[in-house]
Structure formats: C-alpha cells, structure tokens
Design a protein around this nucleic acid. Structure first.
Length: 255
DNA sequence: ATGGCTCGTGTAACGAGA
C-alpha cells in the first residue's frame, strides 16, 4: 500500500497539479491539507474521474483536509471528537483495513501569540485522540502537515530558527509524545539525503536555494512501520509553475 | 533590512501562512 500527504495551499489553484501528480504517482491514499474551500465547492467529480474516492472536511478561506483513496473509505470521522474546534483540520477513515488520520496541525505564527497557545492546546488534544485511535484500531497511519520540524537536521538553518515557531522544544516534545504512543517517523527508517525538506518559503528563492524545512510527516504504528519498503519526498511538484509551497511525501508498506 | 511570495477575499489592501 502506498500512501502520501501533500499540503496543496488552495485546492482551487492546485487541482491540475494534483490530478497530474496522481497520473504519474497513482498512490492508494493521498491526504491533502489547506484546501481553502467549502465542501460544496470540493471538486469531487474530477477526483472520481481520476479513479479516486474522496472524503473531505473543509471551510471557506482557510484550512480544510481531504482523503483521496482508490478503495472505498469506511468509518469516516471528521474533526477530533473530544475537542471543539471551528477550524477544519482533521479527517480520518479506514481504507483497506488501515486507519488513516489526516491532520493539518496549527501553524502557531509566533511563540508569543494566541495562535501558539492554540497550537499547544490542539497538540495536547491530538495526542489524546491518537492514544484513543491506537487503542481502538491497533495500527494507525497519521499523515499531514505537522508544522513541526522534529530535529535540527530538518531545518535549513537551525541556528536562525532556534526557539522559533515550528522548532521550539515544546512543539518537538509534542512530536516525541506522539512517537511515544508507538509511532515511527517513517522517513527516518531509512538513510536519507542531508537537507531533505518538504516546505520552502515562496520568498527569497527558497526552493532554488533549498532553504526549507521538513514539516510534513507520515507516522506509522509499529506493525505498519515494520513493513515499510520506501519513504521519499517528491520534490518534482515544487518545480512546477505556481506550485504549492509544500511538496508530497510518500510511504510504501506491506499490508 | 523582521522584508522578501502567494493565497482568498473581493475588487484595495490585508490577514495568514511557515
């Protein structure tokens, strides 16, 4: 089974990229974030024509998540059941017997902002949700835009980013807290090139200079992680005209 | 130099992203 995550930064703008990517990378599951559109405007027909089922949890202007899958999604749950949140950041479904949880974790803006406090509370809720999910389903795949660079090697300039949002100890503690539930960071199951990133700032020619961060992740519980055969970042979509600032991450595992 | 792009909204700037 091959699963992927991609923050598209507006599905309206990026729909052609997504459809083209699915042709060359026909994954079994693709989790999308930052749709930035209401559910009534989700391009369901285009996804079905591409051969995918789609379930989605969107809102106007901001946020929004979707799961595309070759097989029919079952037991679809939108949002975190025990955390009231007006922002549409979570959707989960079971596909081919695998519990898939797609998250768009809060950015947090700056450490002294209300948004950072919201991020901390949100991450606490996510940890509880995942504890319950692992208990309920046994094996879980947690994919998405985490807005956390887990280690200094996931940041192009760790000194400049030290203590900044995405890189604070508190955020990294939350990431390790998820790992402690029994997850593995699938990307790090393999030797990877240095300076492997999934996001680059639109400004300052960030991509061309590889000034990026690794903030999009695919976490897998132990049995799934034990069957992983590859984990890669596909930088090709970031080279297109009008790209998303994020690029897809793909993991393949035996199932 | 605390900016630099890009998006949605809505039709001018501005908030938000990371």
């Amino acid at each position: 089974m091959k699963i992927a995550t991609w923050n598209v930064n507006s599905l309206n703008v990026r729909l052609p990229h997504v459809l083209e990517w699915l042709k060359t990378s026909p994954v079994d599951v693709l989790c999308l974030q930052e749709l930035k559109l209401e559910d009534t405007k989700f391009p369901l027909e285009a996804m079905e024509e591409a051969g995918y089922f789609a379930v989605f949890n969107g809102q106007k202007t901001y946020n929004g998540v979707a799961i595309l899958s070759r097989a029919k999604p079952e037991d679809v749950v939108k949002d975190m059941p025990d955390y009231a949140d007006a922002q549409k950041r979570v959707i989960a479904a079971t596909i081919n017997g695998v519990r898939i949880v797609n998250v768009y974790i809060v950015n947090g803006q700056t450490v002294d902002s209300d948004k950072y406090q919201y991020k901390m509370a949100w991450l606490t809720a996510l940890r509880k949700y995942m504890e319950d999910a692992v208990s309920t389903y046994g094996e879980v795949a947690l994919l998405g835009d985490y807005n956390i660079a887990p280690e200094d090697r996931d940041v192009h300039d760790p000194k400049a980013w030290a203590g900044q949002v995405l890189c604070t100890d508190a955020e990294r503690d939350h990431f390790r807290g998820l790992i402690a539930l029994g997850f593995a960071d699938s990307f790090r199951l393999f030797d990877q090139p240095e300076k492997s990133f999934t996001w680059w700032d639109y400004r300052m020619h960030g991509f061309r200079r590889n000034l990026g961060m690794r903030i999009d992740h695919i976490l897998l519980t132990k049995n799934l992680a034990g069957g992983v055969t590859s984990a890669v970042i596909d930088v090709e979509p970031r080279k297109l005209e009008r790209p998303s600032d994020h690029t897809p991450v793909i993991v393949e595992f035996k199932s």
